[in-house]
Design a protein around this nucleic acid. Sequence first.
DNA 1: GCCAAGCCTG
DNA 2: CAGGCTTGGC
Length: 603
Amino acid sequence: MDPNSSVLSSPSRACSRPAESCVGGGRSPPPREQGRDSFFPWSQVPSSSLTDPDWFWDEHVQAKRARVETIIRGMCLSPNPLVPGNTRARDGPCCPEKTRERKRKQSLPMQQNPLKPGPAGNHGSRKGAPHMKEQLQLLKQQLRHLQEHILQAAEPRDTAQGPGSPEKGWGPHNVKQRNGYGSRPWAVDSDHHQRSGGDLSGVEKYPREVSEVEYQPEEPMFLPSGTRALLEILRKELIGAVSQAVDSILQKVLLDPQGHLTQRGRSFQGLVPESRIETSPEGSAYKDPLPLAALPRRAQAQAGVLLGNLSLAKPPDSPRYPTSPRMIPKSYQGPPENCPLAVPSHVQENQILGQLLDQGPCGLWSGNLPQDSPSQSHSSAESALRPWGAVKPRPSVLSQEQHPLPFTSTCLERLSLLPSVKMEHRGLQAAADVLPFSSVHIQEGLNPSHLKKAKLMFFFTRYPSSSLLKAYFPDVQFNRCITSQMIKWFSNFREFYYIQMEKFARQAISDGVTNPKMLVVLRDSELFRALNMHYNKGNDFEVPDCFLEIASLTLQEFFRAVSTGKDSDPSWKKPIYKIISKLDSDIPEIFKSSSYPQELFRN
DNA sequence: GCCAAGCCTG
DNA sequence: CAGGCTTGGC
């Protein structure tokens, strides 16, 4: 069989995919432990807001920061969650790229189990705080603003109106504020009361914040009982509104921007006509023994941006490889949106939350998997015709420099454009993780749910450090044995993964494939099924595209090694391991939840 | 020598 | 998946 025969009929969908956000966009973990820890963010610049003199250095804001910081400290429930990063100043804003990358990296340790005081646990959630503080501050100012209106309305009403018709005075404001933010920006209230930095420990931060309104000294104690009752109602409404706002923020941060949020953006990218996606010409593949995968992540990102833009700027001049509609899942049939961030964030979040919660067989989690659809019979037949069906030959029409197409600009731009709100509210998320968990048992051992979670995490990280594992399994009481066991799990995962890669690479060689770049792991390929069956047996998780890209790269590396006879060297796999170990991705924040994914899988 | 990772085996 | 062993880096 001519392995290239199917090129025309099934151009690679993977080629058209924008880079997975986690590829080249995440932390750039060194292969091993000691190096990884250096990437942990508590020593890094939290965000651009710190470098924005317009607000960070503003005196008022400074004062507010101090105040809200106290609040957050109370929220986090951590014995010491807000240890200031003493190396913040180290990282200046001189290099935006660097700052951005660190911003991403800093997500990792932030969720270190605060219940476990220790070297890691003492590093605070401060990094994500500035923006969160800002939001909290806005909420509070909103409250104060409302309060002003209450007072203004209540006092005249005492003389001009009876207590029977008080709505006139404050109703509209109340509605406005509940629906969002009033026409008058809360920011005008710069006269924020500096609280005495009192003791705000414990979970009651929000109630206490609201109660600040309740006990304002200027509250007219002489109000008629009717008015007071109305004030009481308003108070409750405010409490509800604030709680709602906080909930939405927490929801926001519980949804990983790089994992699932960006996957929606990728989906849109699937609409790019594949004829527009150029690939390298045959024969150029071997000129680059260490393609993108061997580059440092930073370099990958930059290369991805440049090449991605280049490729997209080219005219659709490859009619030889028409788009195969079959390759575009139904869920991709949205508007050709390249910038998911253009969608109002709350809309996205709601949709994503819906996805996360939708675990049914018709849920979006599984809906994108072509192999589950009836139309897959075609793919299956196709795979059957290619015994090495793990892969699909990829057409090559461009120069080899276009190779790193999987790492296109879109995801990188997304990363840089991700709302800082999301990136910097992780302190709140830490609180969210802790709050429900503080009363939950920390398990001494590992259970099947942990194993399942670890397997899903493997889609993002092949070489997790023990620190990372601790961060992502907050409900596990780690000790030497547990850590070893979990490390061993990933070792076993890798073993299976590499065995499959070698197997299918050899199969491709024996089938006559000559160009490694023809080997692309797609969702309907045999190799993908094998991997998905192993790591995602229930098929209740949508395998991230970044994993497919890593798998494709791994396959290609094995192909190159075997086809060039390097497998005669007893340690011929090591260079491949080294490459792959640099390609770990950021794990979605949702994985840090102690109840994820066990909670979902219980259903 | 220690330790992490990989390999082999059951 | 886990235990035992080997290997290689430090």
